[in-house]
């Protein structure tokens, strides 16, 4: 790993991070669209971060676009992702202490994130999530996951299938058996 990269990513150096974000790099979607993104923001993607660092110097990446070949990275999805990382790049670093991690998992999404991820077009929503997963942006995958789980809350199997367009590959007998196994969950005290 280059010393340069370690220096740039130092959590304690907010000024460097802010300066680095003034450097614009180009990200290319699987549909061919090229979009600008601040360097610090773009590096929220571990995939992009590794690509940038493998190029040696940050100067190189300002000329050639970074190609994001996964089909989920459509123009629309990439625009959403850039919007998200440009909003979140100066978030405080995530603490991986067990209890803090648990609290973070249980924390509700911020108002901004809720509005950001509440996308009517489910194909786009799933593209954003799949693209964030491909680009290894853990925070954004988490936002997508919390959003989906909040929509599942309180719904029946059939309602979930309809909402998320999931094919039921159980036979009626198999489904019945699972319902019987889990009947206790509906019991009231």
């Amino acid at each position: 790993m280059a010393d340069n990269a370690d220096h740039i990513d130092g959590d304690d150096n907010e000024d460097v991070r802010a300066q680095q974000n003034l450097i614009k790099i180009k990200l290319k979607s699987s549909e061919g669209g090229i979009y600008e993104c601040g360097l610090t923001a773009a590096k929220m993607s571990d995939l992009v971060k590794n690509m940038v660092e493998s190029l040696g110097t940050d100067a190189v990446v300002t000329t050639e676009p970074i190609i994001l070949g996964n089909e989920a990275v459509t123009d629309a999805a990439l625009k959403k992702i850039i919007e998200w990382v440009e909003f979140h790049w100066d978030d405080p670093p995530v603490d991986h202490d067990f209890e803090d991690e648990k609290d973070r998992r249980n924390e509700e999404l911020s108002h901004w994130d809720k509005q950001f991820i509440d996308v009517d077009d489910q194909a786009l929503l799933f593209d954003v999530i799949a693209a964030a997963n491909y680009m290894d942006i853990k925070g954004l995958v988490e936002v997508g996951a919390k959003h989906i789980c909040s929509k599942i809350r309180g719904k029946s199997c059939q309602e979930v299938r309809e909402m998320l367009k999931i094919t039921n590959d159980f036979t009626a007998e198999e489904e019945d058996a699972i319902h019987k196994e889990n009947a206790w969950i509906y019991a009231k005290d």
Binding site: R153, G154, K155, D169, F170
Partner: peptide, 13 residues
Amino acid sequence: LSLKDRFITECVS
């Protein structure tokens, strides 16, 4: 998901 929701939705697929 809450544990309850996991059991309720187990048979989705």
